[in-house]
Design a protein around this nucleic acid. Structure first.
Lengths: 155, 155
DNA sequence: GTAATTCCTAAACCTAACTTTAGCTCAAGA
DNA sequence: TCTTGAGCTAAAGTTAGGTTTAGGAATTAC
C-alpha cells in the first residue's frame, strides 16, 4: 500500500492555521498520532488536517481537549476515516452541542424571571429554585442570589 | 448612618458557597470592595452576597472576571443597590448573554450543513464560508475543515 | 556542497482563576 | 483568661492550553 510520505508538521500547521507547538501539544494529549520518518521527524496523514480542524471547531464550542479526545475515539485507527465515519462523529458531537446550548438557554430563561422581579433575589426567582439549580454545571452558589429560604436578615 | 458592622468573609463564604480564598481573589480583581474593621479584618455589605452570586452566575455563562467587572460597574458605589439597579444590570447582562447564545446557535446550524454532507469538508459546508468564519470568536482555522478552495491534493 | 529552513526535545514560561502553605494576629466562647 | 477558630498577608502551587527558548539535527534550496 503506497501510504505515501505523509505531510510535515509545518504543512499541517499552514493548512489548519494552528501553531506547530499546538500540534505537538495535541499529540502529547493523544488527539493525533503521527508516525516518524527516518530522520525522526513527525509525519501526519492528510486526513489529520480534517481531524485538527474538528478539534478547533469543537474548542470554539467550549469543549475541553479530553472531551474532544472522547469524540475522536470513534474514528477508525487503522484507516483514513470515511464520510460515514465523520457523519457519525458529527452526529454525536451535535447532540452534545445541543445539550450545551439548551443548558445555556434554560439558564437565560431562568434569569429572565429575575429581571422581571427586578432584584435577582426574591423567592419567585427561578434561579433560586433548587431543581433549577441542580441543573447547573459545577458547584454553583449554595444559596443562589444571596437568600436562604428562611431569612435575609439573620446574624 | 448606622451602616452596621458589616458581615465577615467567612459568613459571606457560607452564604454564597464560595471559598474564602476565592472572595479574597475577587477583591484583588476589583469585583468587590470590602472595608476593614479596627482589627484589620474585612467587612462586607450584606448586599455583597447578591453581588457575589451575580458573579457566580455570570461565570456559569462563561464570562471572564474582567467582563463581569464591566457589568458590575453600573452598580452604585456609595449606596446599596436597589431593585432598579439590579434590573438595569440584569438587562445589560441579558443582552450579552443573548449574543453569546446566538453565536453558538449559528455555529451549530452551520455545523448541520457539514453533518448533512457527511464529510465536514466540502465547499458546501457553511463552516467553510469565509463570512461565517469571520463571525467566529478567536482566530479560528485559516482553512476550516481541511480544504482550501483550490485543492485537497497539492504537495 | 553549503546555507537557510524546518524540525527535534526538554524545560521554562504564560494567563486565568483559584487554592495551599506558612507564619502570625484577632476575636469569641467556656 | 486562655484557648481555639477565624482572619490576615505574601508567596508558591495548580490546571488547562498553550508558547518560548535553547541547543542540536534533518531537510530543502540554490
Amino acid at each position: 500500500m503506497h501510504q505515501s510520505a505523509g505531510i510535515s508538521i509545518g504543512y499541517l500547521a499552514d493548512r489548519t492555521g494552528l501553531a506547530v507547538s499546538a500540534i505537538r501539544y495535541y499529540e502529547a494529549q493523544g488527539l493525533v498520532e503521527p508516525w516518524r520518518n527516518a530522520g525522526g521527524q513527525r509525519r501526519f496523514h492528510r486526513a489529520d488536517i480534517r481531524r485538527l480542524s474538528f478539534i478547533m471547531i469543537a474548542q470554539q464550542f467550549g469543549f475541553s481537549l479530553p472531551e474532544i479526545r472522547g469524540f475522536l475515539k470513534s474514528l477508525p485507527g487503522g484507516r483514513t476515516p470515511t464520510k460515514e465515519d465523520w457523519a457519525c462523529i458529527s452526529a454525536n458531537f451535535r447532540s452534545h452541542l445541543d445539550q450545551r446550548i439548551e443548558t445555556l438557554v434554560r439558564l437565560r430563561d431562568n434569569l429572565d424571571g429575575c429581571i422581571g422581579c427586578g432584584c435577582l433575589s426574591l423567592p419567585n426567582c427561578k434561579l433560586y429554585n433548587p431543581e433549577d439549580r441542580a441543573a447547573q454545571k459545577g458547584q454553583g452558589p449554595r444559596y443562589l442570589m444571596g437568600d436562604r429560604p428562611e431569612a435575609e436578615n439573620d446574624p
